[in-house]
């Protein structure tokens, strides 16, 4: 029973970390000033958030004895790890090629006012 308790604690920590970074990603997407910087927050936080929660759930599955379920959850985690940055890249590229200018600091634009 000790091992089960340890595995549940590991799950709790991983899920808590994941939720924290999901929240950071959401705050970033709401607060940051332009599309490109929002993509930074969205991609990085979604990848680690989802990865961490899914890893935690895989550990939970293993503690219940469902090893195939745990393995499938890991497959989903790898899928997120590969697809999330690729999707962000495709989107950023489409935005850039359709002429969306990135936000820069007012003083970096030669002191002109916004």
């Amino acid at each position: 029973m000790l091992i089960e308790a340890i595995l549940q604690a590991v799950t709790a920590v991983l899920v808590a970390v994941g939720l924290f970074f999901f929240l950071v990603g959401t705050v970033g997407v709401l607060r940051l000033p332009d599309f490109y910087s929002r993509t930074h927050a969205a991609t990085k936080c979604d990848t680690l958030g989802a990865g961490s929660i899914l890893l935690g759930l895989a550990v939970l599955g293993a503690s219940r004895g469902d090893y195939t379920d745990g393995l499938k959850v890991l497959v989903i985690a790898v899928l997120v790890l590969l697809s999330s940055p690729t999707a962000a890249h495709a989107l950023a590229r489409a935005a850039f090629r359709t002429g969306l200018e990135p936000y820069t600091l007012p003083e970096a634009r030669g002191g002109e006012d916004r």
Partner: peptide, 11 residues
Amino acid sequence: TVADRILGVNI
């Protein structure tokens, strides 16, 4: 922008 909307739906 449209890109922001697609990003929102993606996450």
